[in-house]
């Protein structure tokens, strides 16, 4: 999903916030998109009720077709039963072209073609769903930086101080002295094995969700730096 050209986006592009995540979009502008495109049929907010369409408060993380007091199309109910849950990606795809995702949807809407408008709309809608501070599993509120493209990170590859900083995150769970109970030791591995294991998590071939997430935010140089660092610990 591409974000709109918000002020923050520009600052980020200029490198003012190294390592900063991307905003989903410009929520203020998204509010305008909502009023223009959606508000004829949908309400959103703490007191919102269903209208022609279901209320959109708390949409993220909700199963499709699951508001008990709303009558959905058969198609939408079936998609929900099949497991469709509204996330930033699925809702974006639906709004881009509703009938492509849910063929028999009652929503009589041609779709919103502009990527930037949709991103801004998502940012606006996201403000009315669960807060991750209280419900940590809630849908993210920003887009993660792609570790493989981040210029700040590429510039510091091979820096042992950086390897040490990265390693501090591993040591919340994996003990520096190599003890392993419940969580395996990661010290003194041959670097090659370490790199292979981390890439297997990154590609989600190995199943562990914490490790998939941790490895997923590291690029090749970072994985190599960690492998080198942990190989030296005894």
């Amino acid at each position: 999903m591409r974000k709109g050209r918000s002020l923050f986006g520009l600052l980020f592009a200029l490198g003012a916030f190294p390592g900063a995540a991307e905003e989903i979009g410009d929520a203020d502008h998204g509010g305008g998109v909502f009023n223009k495109e959606c508000a004829a049929c949908h309400r959103i907010g703490p007191e919102a009720q269903h209208r022609v369409g279901p209320r959109l408060t708390g949409i993220f993380g909700r199963r499709a077709g699951s508001e008990e007091d709303f009558s959905y199309s058969k198609s939408m109910a079936r998609m929900g039963a099949d497991g469709l849950t509204w996330t930033l990606e699925t809702l974006d795809a639906y709004i881009a072209n509703p009938k492509a995702l849910v063929s028999g949807t009652k929503m009589n809407y041609r779709g919103l073609a502009s990527d930037a408008d949709r991103a801004d709309l998502m940012a606006f809608l996201r403000e009315f769903s669960d807060e991750p501070q209280n419900i940590p599993e809630a849908e993210p509120t920003a887009l993660k930086t792609n570790p493989d493209l981040s210029p700040e990170v590429l510039a510091i590859k091979g820096d042992p101080a950086y390897g040490e900083y990265l390693a501090s995150e591993c040591q919340t769970c994996h003990q520096a002295d190599g003890s392993d109970q419940g969580i395996p030791s990661i010290i003194a591995w041959p670097p090659e094995d370490f790199v292979i294991a981390m890439h297997a998590y990154k590609q989600k071939l190995r199943p562990h969700p914490v490790m998939q997430m941790m490895a997923g935010r590291l690029n090749e140089e970072e994985i190599a730096a960690l492998a080198a660092y942990f190989a030296t610990l005894e």
Binding site: P136, E137, T141
Partner: peptide
């Protein structure tokens, strides 16, 4: 059971960028 997420900073806040449960 467990729930987790990773976070990055935006100019305004520490933002959740990925989560699992």
């Amino acid at each position: 059971v467990k729930v987790g997420a990773s976070y990055e900073s935006t100019p305004e806040k520490i933002a959740s960028v990925e989560s699992f449960v």
